[in-house]
């Protein structure tokens, strides 16, 4: 304990509550409130309603939720496979190559998402690789943007894994494939699940690359929230944002459970 006087602590806690309230709590609360607002002309809404949720769910929101979930799932699954594969096979490289490739696998996380979208438009608008206008280009954009995070998470997990496990397995006669499947991957499971969850969440909220490349008929949640608020339909936008937040948090919490079970704690 750094501050011993009670008054000093209370002042600091009040400061914390103020900052936390203004920056973090108020935004979430006000999104929730506005998603339920009927009439809102004064400081607070004069009436509450669930009509916005009904409206968005009867409108195109169902499609947006589906598009986001499918995109998120496929892109995250592909990123998980590719990121895990990359992290595992990177261990077999020499020191210099390992550093270089490790850096290259991280770079997609550093490039602005809009530029990733622009690059895909430029690269894949002509045959033989004509992806522009298809659902696939959205998946690819999300995959590129989240692949670095899965790679990073799995690499971090591998770095924490004691080499003893794999070495003992080898000494007992386990060939590399058997060892990978029965020892390395199960021990990495918590990191794999966490990586999948984080990339799913990132994909669910991705906007920059998606607005560049999305085809009509595959409008993700962030894009449709933007078009709702851009039209001035802010309450429906808030309702859809709440759906996005709840879906993301439910997903993360669910996966956290799975991870806890996988790590056996």
């Amino acid at each position: 304990m750094l501050v011993w006087s009670r008054s000093g602590r209370l002042v600091l806690w009040a400061l914390f509550a103020l900052v936390f309230g203004v920056l973090f709590l108020a935004p979430l609360a006000v999104i929730l409130l506005s998603s339920l607002a009927g009439q809102w002309n004064g400081v607070l809404p004069s009436s509450l309603t669930t009509a916005h949720y009904g409206d968005v769910l009867h409108g195109s929101a169902g499609d947006a939720v589906k598009a986001s979930l499918v995109t998120g799932f496929l892109a995250s699954a592909l990123a998980l496979v590719s990121g895990t594969w990359a992290a595992l096979s990177l261990r077999l490289q020499g020191h210099a190559l390992r550093r270089l490739l490790g850096l290259l696998f991280f770079i997609p996380s550093a490039v602005p998402s809009v530029s990733v979208g622009l690059g895909l438009l430029v690269a894949f608008s002509n045959p033989p690789l004509l992806l522009n206008g298809t659902v696939a280009i959205v998946m690819v954009a999300h995959f590129v943007l989240i692949s670095a995070f899965t790679f990073g998470n799995v690499s971090a997990g591998l770095a924490r894994l004691s080499p003893d496990f794999e070495q003992v397995a080898s000494s007992l006669g386990a060939r590399p494939g058997y060892r990978l499947w029965h020892v390395t991957l199960p021990l990495l499971a918590p990191y794999l699940v966490a990586a999948f969850g984080l990339s799913f969440a990132l994909s669910m909220g991705e906007l920059g690359a998606t607005v560049m490349v999305y085809p009509p008929g595959w409008v993700t949640l962030p894009v449709s929230i933007f078009s709702l608020t851009d039209r001035g339909d802010v309450f429906a936008g808030a309702a859809l944002t709440m759906i996005l937040v709840v879906a993301t948090l439910a997903l993360l919490l669910g996966l956290e459970r799975v991870a806890a079970r996988a790590s056996g704690s």
Binding site: S171, L172, G173, P176
Partner: peptide, 8 residues
């Protein structure tokens, strides 16, 4: 290692 017939 896996062809050496050891225990560790």
């Amino acid at each position: 290692p896996y062809e050496r017939g050891l225990g560790m």
